[in-house]
Simulated scan of single mutants.
Amino acid sequence: MKNTFLLFIILISTFFKSQSVIIDIEEPGFGKPAGYYQKDTNNLLDPFQGTYIYTNGNKSFKIVLKKMIKQPVGSHYEDIVIGEYQYTENGVEKINTLSNLNIVYSDQFLKHNIAGKRILWNNTRLWKCPQCNPNEKRLAVRIIDTISDRYADFLMRRTVVNGQQVIQTKINNISAAIWEEGTPEPPAFTLPTGEFTMIKQ
C-alpha cells in the first residue's frame, strides 16, 4: 500500500511538472515533456496584430491578424498568430475567409488560413534582411489558398514607410499540387506571391 501511494505521488508530481514547463517562443521544444507551453514571453507577436491591405492595379489583398494565447498544438501549447483574408481582382471577390477569424477551433493552427509563430532572424536563408536592425524580429506563418488548396510561407517584417506603419511581406515556397491521374489539374495558387508591402489600417 505504501509503495502504491508513493508511486501515485511520483506520477502526480511528474504530471504537474510537465504542465508547468514554460519556454520562450524562440526556444525549440525538442526534448521537453508533454504539455509544455511555448510562450511569447517578450510579446514579439503583438506588433503584428491588425488589418493590412495591399493593392496593385485591379488587385486587392486584405489580411487580419490576431494573437492567440496558449493554443493546443499536438501534445503541447503555443502562443500563435492566426488570421484570415480577402482577395479581390477586377472588383470581383475571389476569396473571403474573414468571417472565420473569430471561430474557435480545437486546433487553431490547422484550421485558420493564416497561422504560425516562427520568429525570423536577419540571417535566415528564408528571407535575408540586410536592412534590418541587428536585433529586429520578423514573423513567418503559413497561408492557405482556399481555391487551389495549396499553402505557402508568409513572411512578414514590420516597418514604417513615409510615416505609415506597414508590413513588408514575402509569399513563397508554394506547396505542390496533388491530383489523381485522369482528373482535372487543380487551379494555380491564387494569392499574390513574391515580395510586396501591405499598409496597416
Rank of each mutant, 00 (worst) to 15 (best):
L101S: 04
I103Y: 08
I95G: 04
H76V: 06
F196M: 07
Q164S: 11
W127E: 02
Q131E: 15
I114F: 04
I167D: 01
A188C: 06
K170V: 03
M1N: 11
Y151S: 15
N100K: 14
N133W: 10
A188Q: 12
F16V: 05
I10W: 06
P184A: 02
A140Y: 00
M156G: 09
I144C: 00
L120Y: 10
I53E: 14
M156N: 08
F5H: 14
E136S: 05
Y52L: 10
K62Q: 13
I12H: 10
S75N: 09
N96F: 05
S148N: 06
G182K: 08
N102A: 11
S175E: 12
G91E: 09
A115H: 03
C132N: 00
I167S: 02
E181T: 09
N100H: 07
D153E: 11
G50N: 07
V160G: 01
C132L: 01
N123P: 01
K111I: 04
P184D: 02
T88H: 03
H112N: 10
C132E: 01
L101F: 03
T146I: 13
L139K: 14
P47Y: 13
I103N: 11
I80V: 09
E185C: 01
D79H: 01
V166G: 00
F154T: 05
T183E: 06
C132S: 00
